[in-house]
Design a protein around this nucleic acid. Structure first.
Lengths: 208, 208
DNA sequence: GTCTATAAGAAGATAGAC
DNA sequence: GTCTATCTTCTTATAGAC
């Protein structure tokens, strides 16, 4: 899992395959994500997929890596010094602005695609390992922000790990409900609930 | 979606098929959930499945109904009057005691099975409608408990809907992380975080 | 209602030409 | 590296006997 980006760019075939796989997944869903469906999403044939990846499973493991890399890279918000603003920005990114794909408005978005792959982790050790690392990375990010906030006196002295765990779980739950129900506003609702019922208490002074 | 239980019991073939489908799903995962795999889990043949359900899709829609019915029925905890104790019991049920299947310790449990089906909601309108109803049912349950608690003076006067939204999102996020990562303790961690960092603030007096 | 047998198509994967 | 063509297996679904 490479969360760095020192490569030459997204111009080689492997990268094109990953992009095609994402398009195919959004169109057909994980259950109907065939090699043919992936091949149909770019200008080469099915055989090319097997040239670059021995098996479909191998391709999908690489694809989850691609998804998580993309997911994390998307969080690289402009550096904000204030831990309070930084935390709010992170929450907003994860709960509101998670649809960066404007290619096809009808197909499910990125969070749904990620959810579909995530859901198969119980039956795939590689998936579970990647997702465990991703969870710990996110939790560390949140814990650090909260610790910084406490140190700078903008947050009350709480258990930063527990606080991070709770925020992260709420965010993920909100994302999942957004993808799996018709309540399209659930992202905003969870964001507002998190802000009004929890983060407001976390702040030392409630500066509106 | 029938959350009532006025039937004659789980003795007919349709019920057996649902139970077999759950076993097959836990064993093989949604991606490899074939009609043959389901048939192998009970004492009748594949043709019987098509006799009772015209298509595989139809069977799976009925199966999600069965899963959600089971999920909700499992929450029927002994009637607790105190809203505080009732809320804690509900949170514990959803985050700790969700593995009621002791049939196969190696296969993923019930929450993972439900997650796998849930994940396909973006591509299945029937799934999404059922899951929307389920979300609203859970949220109403939580909202009612919180309103009762406020009325009885055991909870502070908060926005009960926002509070329910936040608790529900955290619970679902915790369940999903439990199923998709190797952090087997994440259920307990989210429960503790919810209790120590949020519910303790909700109570009018912090009675340990 | 349940069985066996089979149709009809789609899946992952490979062979060999270019 | 990429193509076309093909192999083999698996899939959903049905037909017809009991």
């Amino acid at each position: 899992m490479k969360y760095t980006d020192a490569d030459q760019g997204p111009s080689d075939t492997a990268e094109e395959i990953m992009e095609a796989t994402l398009r195919a997944l959004r169109k057909h869903g994980y259950a109907n994500l065939t090699m043919q469906a992936i091949a149909d999403e770019f200008d080469k044939t099915k055989a090319v997929l097997h040239y670059h990846y021995d098996t479909k499973d191998e391709l999908l493991v690489a694809f989850l890596d691609y998804l998580l890399d993309r997911f994390i890279r998307r969080l690289d918000f402009e550096t904000i010094d204030d831990p309070d603003a930084r935390l709010s920005a992170l929450v907003d990114r994860l709960l509101l602005e998670f649809d960066d794909d404007t290619s096809d408005e009808t197909a499910p978005g990125f969070p749904a695609a990620l959810l579909e792959v995530r859901a198969h982790a119980p039956h795939n050790d590689s998936y579970r390992e990647q997702l465990t690392l991703n969870y710990e990375l996110l939790k560390d990010m949140l814990t650090t922000i909260i610790d910084d906030g406490i140190e700078q006196g903008v947050f009350n002295p709480v258990d930063s790990e527990q606080t991070a765990t709770l925020i992260l779980a709420a965010i993920m739950g909100g994302r999942d409900y957004y993808s799996t129900t018709n309540r399209e506003c659930v992202g905003e609702e969870v964001r507002d609930a998190l802000q009004d019922q929890f983060l407001s208490e976390l702040r030392t002074s409630d500066r509106t």
